[in-house]
């Protein structure tokens, strides 16, 4: 992942299920079924494309402007940070 200094935390496992991406956080003994836009973002982050491309593709897939898409991505990352799925590094 390479977006705004966020990185995945350790001990995460994920799988594509029919109803969305399932993530298991082994360290905290938690699992999450990601919502549809979360699943889209997760898949984009996994393929390691750069942040501009992620914003562009994510916004296109969920049919919003790039500004709206960026806001949506930040809100998802913030939610994931609270759930220990990602961490924010200091610049």
């Amino acid at each position: 992942m390479n977006i705004w200094n966020y990185s995945f935390t350790n001990n995460l496992y994920w799988v594509n299920d029919r109803n969305g991406v399932v993530v298991v956080d082994e360290q905290h003994q938690q699992s999450y079924l990601l919502g549809s836009s979360e699943s889209i973002l997760w898949r984009l982050l996994i393929i390691h494309i750069d942040s501009d491309a992620i914003i562009r593709r994510f916004s296109a897939i969920i049919s919003v402007s790039e500004d709206e898409g960026k806001g949506k991505i930040l809100s998802i990352l913030s939610k994931w940070e609270k759930n220990n799925l990602v961490e924010h590094g200091n610049d």
Binding site: V15, D17, R18, V22, V24, Q29
Partner: peptide, 18 residues
């Protein structure tokens, strides 16, 4: 058993969740 619980959210098929 408790350690395996988080994994039970999924199944052997992608369709198991639904």
């Amino acid at each position: 058993i408790e350690r395996t619980n988080p994994w039970q959210i999924s199944g052997i098929y992608p369709e198991c969740g639904t």
